[in-house]
């Protein structure tokens, strides 16, 4: 993610699918299983850090402390798990993040 315009960036960029660590072993049959899923939020060089924090607060009702912690985890580690639940809930949450311009993917809880 990009820091605010007057700050110096020191993070990494994760924008293309080719740069995602291939931890997701999802298959079509997984969609039919009623097992917990994780919503993974990925780092990118365009979204501003305060924007990501704001979105996590407004969408999921997270405290400023939790939203900031997750945002910085994304920024520093490239990704963070921001939500989890059934496949339907995880897809719903990921879609909410996509509506706000953030890149979220799904992976199995056991992955």
């Amino acid at each position: 993610m990009s820091k605010t315009p007057t700050e110096k960036n020191d993070g990494r960029s994760v924008l293309s699918a080719s740069t995602i660590t291939r931890q997701d072993t999802t298959t079509s049959s997984d969609l039919e299983a009623d097992l917990p899923w994780r919503v993974v939020l990925w780092n990118d060089p365009i979204n501003l850090i305060p924007y990501v924090t704001y979105v996590l607060q407004s969408l999921f009702g997270y405290s400023i402390e939790k939203a900031t912690e997750l945002t910085m985890e994304v920024h520093n580690n490239g990704r963070a798990i921001v939500s989890h639940g059934s496949c339907e809930k995880a897809e719903f949450d990921a879609n909410l993040l996509h509506q706000k311009g953030l890149w979220a993917t799904l992976e199995r809880e056991s992955a």
Partner: peptide, 18 residues
């Protein structure tokens, strides 16, 4: 492309459903 990111980047079938 960044406005329509993939939910399942490694599963074309699941992604198509989404």
């Amino acid at each position: 492309t960044r406005l329509f990111p993939p939910t399942y980047p490694f599963d074309d079938s699941a992604q198509a459903k989404v």
